[in-house]
């Protein structure tokens, strides 16, 4: 008899934080299993950044001036932080498409009818995306080394750089989560997650030295959240080109802090909106 009643009543766990973490891990695990079973997603996700590495190093490499140098090697090292940062922001599309798909298939309804923590479905998804982003970065870094990218700082600083990249990717996956909950189809979530990333990443210091932009664009680029992480990575990797003049804008002077602050703000803002949207999703 007690065996029956054990399963009948579901008790409210005492600690909501513990429950939230536990539920998020269950959902993250589910998403990781999915990723392992659909490896195409990871592989296609690598095509574009690898293509960018090759195109920018070999096609534009010799013609773009950064700092006071127009050597191919200086540009190559300058470029990688930009491509790394752009790549991590693609997590937006992944998270968005995944959540839109779950909505579409009725899985979000299933989750919402369960006595689980309210933010766990989205947190679990973004955590799984973080793992995917990390894997992508590893592969991309290897490719970068193969085409001649080198770091010139100690290992700890290099790790800080990658840490900031992961945090940025995590923040952007929350933007994706909100997009995924707001659109009707996974396809719309993918394009909705990517369209605005191109202007965002191109009006930044990712591919060119922002000092050489017209002043209007330069201001945007200097305050672009994305530029802060790129600049921070260049400092942490020792990839600033010879003769590079650090702009006076605060985020460029303190890029590590700026990158941290931007990412945390993005998470706080979009997580709040996304969780609210999840609770009322119809």
């Amino acid at each position: 008899m007690s065996a029956v009643t054990d399963t009948v009543r579901v008790t409210a766990p005492g600690n909501p934080v513990g429950r939230s973490i536990r539920d998020s891990l269950v959902v993250a695990r589910r998403n990781l299993i999915r990723m392992a079973r659909i490896p195409e997603m990871l592989i296609f996700g690598l095509f574009q950044p690898i293509m960018f590495v090759v195109l920018f190093t070999y096609v534009f490499g010799g013609s773009i001036q950064v700092g006071s140098s127009s050597s191919t090697q200086a540009y190559r090292e300058f470029l990688m932080a930009g491509i790394f940062a752009q790549t991590v922001t693609f997590a937006t599309a992944g998270a968005g498409a995944g959540i839109a798909d779950d909505m579409h298939k009725g899985l979000i309804d299933r989750f919402r009818s369960l006595p689980m923590s309210r933010g766990a479905v989205l947190t679990g998804r973004t955590m799984a995306d973080l793992v995917q982003t990390a894997l992508t970065l590893v592969v991309l870094a290897v490719v970068a080394v193969l085409v001649g990218w080198r770091t010139h700082e100690n290992f700890g600083k290099v790790l800080v750089g990658f840490g900031l990249l992961l945090l940025l990717g995590y923040a952007f996956s929350w933007i994706g989560a909100l997009i995924g909950l707001s659109v009707r189809t996974p396809e719309a979530a993918t394009s909705g997650g990517l369209i605005w990333l191109f202007p965002l990443t191109f009006i930044s210091n990712a591919f060119v030295d922002a000092n050489q932009m017209p002043s209007f664009l330069r201001h945007i680029a200097e305050w672009n959240p994305f530029s802060a992480t790129v600049q921070a990575c260049r400092e942490m990797f020792g990839n600033l080109p010879p003769g590079f003049q650090t702009p006076d804008a605060w985020p460029m002077q303190h890029p590590v802090w700026a990158s941290l602050i931007w990412s945390v703000l993005i998470i706080a803002f979009f997580r709040t909106l996304a969780v609210r949207k999840y609770r009322s999703a119809a």
Binding site: R19, V26, R30, R34, K105, L107, P115, M116
Partner: peptide, 23 residues
């Protein structure tokens, strides 16, 4: 009305996940 199961999980994994989310 429409079956809400995760297509990329096995039957067992689907049910186990739901159980865990019931705490």
């Amino acid at each position: 009305q429409f079956a809400a199961v995760d297509e990329y999980l096995t039957g067992r994994e689907n049910l186990q996940m739901v159980g865990q989310l019931y705490q």
